[in-house]
Design a protein around this nucleic acid. Structure first.
Lengths: 331, 331
DNA sequence: TCCACGTCAGAGAGCGCTCCCCGGCAATGC
DNA sequence: GCATTGCCGGGGAGCGCTCTCTGACGTGGA
């Protein structure tokens, strides 16, 4: 309504210079006489000038925004993951610091996926960050084929720049800790095997057991608390003599804790439990959960770094961050 | 790279019509001969034409994106709230259904706030949704002064369209339930009093007690689990004889549960506990938490409805959604 | 037969910005 | 002292689109 916003033209008129000069000042180009520069800046302030981003991106072919794509097929729960909001916040805040905006997109349904593809290939964004945990997800492949910088949170099934944490190493640490404290029959509640995080953590478990010459006892869950509880029940039926369990994430570990309590097993006395992720709730379980922490904030930060760095300037397209065992009382 | 994306011009050339006609077809204007329309559509498909949104918004002065502003001063924790991701997802998904994009912005620091204000007043977005829980937050006031549609999640301190849930009524329900099951000394762990949700829930508690002619026993927390634990400790010291406690959110209720357990009080036998929010964790506490559920998804949906509806077409600028008591085992 | 009118496609202006190119002027070299 | 160079500001084109205006054409009434 009412008065339209001032344009470059208006600022130029007020400062008695040309449009080009105002543009130079606004964009911080250095080749401007300090006196003129000040005059322009004053005019900008007086008029309350704000550049029109549509006009700008029309000519620069840059949008200054990055898509943050959250894939979550109905059966998956990543967005309910307590880490979700932390990742989203970190990414968004890093992006803002770099003068970019985060455009949040959901890609749960095939239609939504198509919309994301259109949007991205339509040049609306300067880059794409995939928060997609699902191996069969077609989106990473589609995005990899577009000529837009893309990066994935966690190793995707296809070849795409990504930032992952050392899932294999973390799982190994967990299992070594368990055998280090004298546990002999160490079971695992694995994550979904169509997610690389699920695969890698199971690999770490198997590797560690193999080098200790132990037998693997595995039940597969889907990273939800309920599935952890169920898997624990199966494990107990299959091998009542187990004295430790490694859960591929904390949510499942918490589920396992409940099953264990109901089955009358004491933790850690009868059965030691180790989780993965170190979500906030892990410190509030009874007993507090020993778990593998991975650097979520660093991971998100690294993703932003990758997507904002032109491919030729990147040191590497693949970043793997170390994990750390947090020993509490459950193991 | 290389081949630039096809423009309206190219489509027009291929379909042997004018730019204007292609524009009409693309925008679904009806005054186009079906035959010509088909030819245009064919050309669009063959060329893989996608409209350039920058050029379009340059002339339409519309951006098709809505800012989703998350305020979270360092001391506040809304974004750690388990409801956060649900709200964000719901909003984003509703927005996408309406053909809009959600631009996520953080407004934690004063600088970030300023950036949000610039961004919004700079016409980058067609509307603003405020996820701001903090009463002293200057942003709602600033946004209210701009001529951009804005809506707040929860009643803000200033006059601004919003969608809230019936915090007063919900708290009353909780307290009435407590006295209904025979509790006499009902304490409250209030939320921060600079947030309207904190205020209103305390008001509901006081109202219910007053009508039952009981004495209020209040400790104030800040909606975190830790503060709930601390508040419960104070409450127990102040009035060892209390037999019920209403916590203004589930996180604090969970903290209270821990304190109670450590103090050797059985729940609900010695002390009944009711929370507020019905977060997922509420059903997994020991014992499962009785709590007040409010319709988060409906609230988010209503916000999107408000922000997308021009003021003159709105039925109301203020929506208050009902709450519901979910009785589990803690009370 | 002629004019009025409605329908629908095309021409063209212009949204606000960036950036290439050029011209003016001062500084420097010979 | 004159030519050359470098610096800095202005002119103007053009990014891709929408939308108003114009004009062609067909239909129906007088």
């Amino acid at each position: 309504m009412g008065s339209r916003r001032p344009t470059l033209e208006a600022v130029a008129a007020r400062a008695r210079v040309s449009r080009a000069t105002v543009s130079r000042v606004v964009n911080g180009r250095t080749t401007v006489d300090p006196e003129i520069r000040d005059a322009v800046l004053r005019a900008v302030a007086e008029l309350g000038y704000v550049p029109n981003s549509a006009a700008r991106s029309l000519v620069t072919r840059q949008t200054d925004s990055i898509a943050l794509v959250v894939s979550e097929p109905p059966t998956r729960v990543f967005s309910d993951d307590p880490l979700f909001s932390l990742v989203v916040r970190t990414v968004s805040s890093e992006l803002e610091a770099a003068g970019k905006q985060a455009v949040l997109m959901l890609a749960s349904s095939p239609q939504a996926q198509a919309r994301v593809e259109d949007y991205v290939s339509g040049g609306h964004v300067d880059g794409v960050m995939l928060l997609s945990m699902h191996g069969a997800d077609p989106l990473p492949g589609a995005v990899a084929r577009m000529d837009v910088p893309a990066v994935s949170y966690g190793r995707p099934a296809v070849d795409l720049p990504h930032v992952d944490n050392d899932n294999v190493g973390g799982a190994e640490q967990a299992v070594r800790h368990l055998s280090g404290v004298g546990r002999r029959r160490i079971a695992a509640i694995a994550g979904p095997q169509d997610m690389t995080a699920g695969q890698d953590r199971l690999t770490g478990y198997r590797d560690a057991l193999r080098s200790a010459d132990r037998r693997a006892i595995v039940a597969v869950g889907d990273f939800t608390r309920a599935s952890g509880a169920t898997a624990m029940r199966h494990l107990l039926e299959d091998d009542p003599g187990l004295d430790a369990v490694f859960a591929a994430n904390d949510l499942m570990a918490i589920g396992a804790l409940q099953t264990l309590r109901r089955a009358g097993r004491r933790v850690p006395d009868d059965v030691a439990v180790v989780g993965f992720d170190d979500i906030e709730a892990a410190s509030f379980t009874d007993p507090p959960l020993t778990t593998v922490r991975h650097p979520v904030v660093e991971q998100a930060t690294a993703m932003v770094g990758l997507v904002l760095t032109p491919p030729e300037e990147r040191e590497s397209d693949r970043v793997v961050l170390p994990t750390e065992l947090v020993v509490r009382e459950s193991a």
